[in-house]
Design a protein around this nucleic acid. Structure first.
Length: 744
DNA sequence: CAAAGATCGCTTTTT
DNA sequence: GCGATCTTTG
């Protein structure tokens, strides 16, 4: 280690206090952009080099894998080398690691697989069918959320009572689901946390071992911990070790997943000796952005008031753009970005476009394509959710853990090998009767063929089909046990099942599907010497949200949730309409509404310099249009911070440029009569006009100065010109009224 | 049993 | 307006 680096230079007083706090219980309340990650990494570096705490005595928990990676890199930069032995990862990955080590104390073996939501739902469906419950009445998706909610509260089936028939069914399915999970030697995401708590609660010796080992436990995004996570911290703190938690109640956005920002308050209650440090200086945003953010968040109650301030100057006015519909909104975003890249030399990677729901990304993607702008999309099931990728993963999981019924059901007839639903049902029934897994029956058939005791249970044709598949499974498993490199194992499976022939049907999509398989191979290559277990763990716990190509020079499209922890010079937040943000499902619950508000707060505070908020009067829902009114949060932003644009009939734009600047959202009555439908101003004469201001020519306006024509269309006997002005940005004008002149 | 066509039902956010 | 599920046909 390098002891002579001064880890404290460049830190403000509060940051210094946090970094150098004595081992104990420390709560750091860190506003957005206040150097939270910096504090965490410097704290770790300080402990290692100044306090001589061995890295192996440190556990650092982050909320996403991305955040863990960032922290790892920064630590390496600070220390000049990777700290050996430190545990750094998400709660889920840390728990998985502990559970695999301590499987002997648990009701499953260390090669358990981790089920994601899809797997969870298939298993619930299996349970429902098994119990002859009507799938229409009791939807697997809704039962899944009930089960998950119970698990988030650490409630087992035994902890629940049922008052209605529906609750009774939910409970029975929950019970059966849990049995099926264990029979498959599988844990779902919630189990990872809950089983870790159970492990510690039931085995004090094990608990103390970990508690003593981790003399300092650091937790990032503490406001988003749930009951189980908080319990884990309690257990780890049992031997009096040090807890250093960093969070911000105002950025708690995972209530629906069981997160409880009141854990921040519980911490102070449970550790009365704890030291509280507030980080209020913001190093990220302009004052304009902070003022807007504060105006939004100040409406929430039950929070520690913070006074965020910044030295970054006043900054540029926030643009609020309103459009007739969501398509126009998306086009505005793409065109504004493209123009600013051309005119103001924005770099694509400095820009982020955020939205409430993933579904909103589609129109944005289309408009980016149309504007010829590359983009990078975070999440939304781009890769790991694809059928072909999931197929291959299921094969690998089955090789790793023969009991995995969900994976077996998924691949047993992919590619089709004549094993239909009836055969699968018969196989499962037979296995169930013998009290073994379907995989074991298959293996028996594969090993002994016609000699197998299972053989007579099926018709010869079916039994042979099953035996062939079983033989394949055995050979892959043997190969894996002998330790062949991962990529060779994958290659062998692909060859044996002729997957390319199956998946690539020589259409464009077919080629793409095969490309995805090859992409998975590429990832497998990184794990060639680490093995199948680590590969599967990574696939289970590292999501699409973590796959952000760092070095692409393009704007980022992402949900507000995915934006947490990131920052961008320019931020667009789209869909500022009631029903979208706040989301319609939140409107009737004050707690949910408070969370929607925090979500917008998180979005706004991602912006360093420039913030755009956009909305639309009409949005396409299920295929038809729905009218929208402006988000109630918009009204909370003081009008002097805002420049309003768009949704003003072209004529009015030309005539009263200052009206828009002074009009305040606070004065709005919505829905106002002139609002809701797009009505171009009536025109006296409808005659053919000629195009005078073609795209890409430069024009001059008496008020706004010079600008570049982006688009010009002839309609209704007038020419509508979209101009990007050098000073005020994007405007839509009617050529007959705007008195534009061409600049040579 | 598999592929192609018809119909239903639903959209929040993610480890 | 999409994907998962049901229905029909070969």
């Amino acid at each position: 280690m390098i002891p002579n680096i001064d880890f404290l230079s460049g830190l403000n007083d509060q940051q210094k206090q946090a970094v150098t706090a004595e081992l104990g219980h420390v709560l750091v309340l860190a506003g957005p952009g206040s150097g939270k990650t910096r504090v965490l990494t410097h704290r770790i570096a300080y402990l290692i080099t100044q306090m001589y705490l061995p890295p192996s005595n440190i556990l650092a928990v982050t909320f996403t894998n991305k955040a863990a990676r960032v922290m790892e890199n920064r630590l390496e930069n600070l220390l000049g080398q990777k700290p050996e032995g430190i545990w750094l990862g998400t709660f889920h990955s840390i728990c998985a690691r502990i559970l695999r080590r301590e499987a002997e104390h648990l009701g499953f073996t260390s090669n358990f697989v981790i089920y994601d939501d899809d797997d969870q739902q298939s298993l619930i469906k299996t349970a429902i069918r098994e119990m002859n419950i009507d799938e229409k009445m009791f939807r697997p998706a809704s039962i899944r959320s009930v089960i998950s909610a119970a698990k988030n509260n650490m409630q087992t089936p035994d902890d629940l009572t049922s008052r209605t028939y529906r609750e009774e069914v939910n409970l029975r399915v929950y019970r059966r689901y849990q049995e099926l999970l264990r029979a498959s030697n599988a844990l779902d995401f919630d189990d990872l946390l809950n089983e870790a708590v159970n492990l510690f609660a039931a085995n004090p010796a094990v608990r103390d071992r970990y508690s003593r080992r981790f003399r300092e436990v650091l937790v990032d995004e503490f406001q988003d911990t749930n009951t189980a996570q908080y319990q884990i911290l309690r257990h780890l703190g049992i031997t009096g070790n040090s807890l250093f938690v960093v969070g911000d109640e105002d950025q708690s956005i995972y209530r629906w997943r069981g997160a409880d920002y009141r854990n921040v308050q519980s911490f102070e209650r449970d550790y009365p000796d704890s030291k509280k440090i507030l980080l209020e200086q913001n190093y990220r945003s302009t004052q304009m952005v902070l003022d807007a953010a504060r105006a939004v968040i100040d409406h929430n109650i039950n929070r520690t008031p913070k006074r965020l301030f910044s030295d970054n100057g006043r900054g540029e006015t926030i643009t609020v753009y309103e459009s007739v519909d969501d398509k126009t909104e998306a086009e505005y975003v793409a065109e504004t970005i493209r123009n600013n890249i051309n005119v103001k030399q924005w770099k694509g990677s400095q820009v982020a476009v955020m939205y409430r729901t993933n579904a909103q990304s589609r129109l944005l993607e289309e408009s980016f394509l149309k504007a010829n702008l590359p983009y990078r999309l975070v999440g939304a099931q781009r890769f790991y959710g694809r059928r072909e990728v999931k197929d291959i993963i299921a094969y690998l999981r089955l090789v790793y853990n023969p009991s995995d019924e969900v994976s077996l059901a998924r691949v047993i007839n992919v590619p089709t090998r004549g094993i239909g639903d009836k055969t699968v049902a018969a196989l499962q029934q037979h296995a169930h009767d013998l009290g073994i897994s379907s995989g074991e029956v298959l293996a028996g058939l594969g090993r002994q063929g016609q000699e197998s005791p299972h053989f007579p249970n099926f018709t010869a044709r079916v039994a042979n089909g099953l035996a062939d598949f079983g033989a394949n499974l055995i050979s892959w498993r043997d190969a894996n046990t002998k330790g062949i490199p991962l990529t060779q194992l994958v290659q062998r499976i692909l060859d044996d099942i002729r997957y390319e022939d199956y998946i690539d049907d020589r259409t464009e999509e077919g080629h793409q599907r095969w490309e995805n398989v090859l992409e998975l191979m590429k990832i497998a290559l990184e794990f060639d010497d680490r093995g199948l277990d680590e590969f599967l763990e990574r696939l289970a716990l590292v999501s699409d949200q973590d796959t952000l190509a760092e070095d692409v020079e393009a704007p980022t499209l992402l949900t507000l949730h995915a934006a947490k922890g990131l920052e961008f010079p320019v931020v667009f937040i789209t869909g500022l309409d009631d029903g979208v943000l706040p989301h319609s499902r939140s409107l009737d619950d004050p707690e949910e509404m408070a969370e929607e508000r925090r979500l917008l707060y998180v979005g706004i505070t991602r912006a360093k310099d420039r913030l755009y908020l956009t909305r639309a009067d009409r949005r396409s829902g299920y295929g038809s249009y729905e009218n929208c009114s402006p988000s109630r949060f918009l009204k909370d932003i003081p009008s002097q911070l805002v420049l309003r644009q768009g949704l003003i009939a072209p004529t009015r734009v030309g005539r009263s440029p200052f009206k828009q600047r002074t009009e305040s959202y606070a004065n709005w009555t919505t829905p106002s009569p002139s609002y809701g439908t797009f009505r171009p101003a009536p025109r006296q004469q409808k005659q053919q006009v000629e195009q005078r201001f073609p795209a890409n020519c430069r024009v001059k306006h008496e008020v706004w100065g010079e600008g570049l024509v982006v688009k010009s269309v002839l309609e209704d006997g007038d020419e509508t010109v979209d101009v990007f002005f050098d000073t005020v940005g994007f405007k839509r004008l009617a050529a007959s009224l705007a008195r534009l002149e061409i600049v040579p």
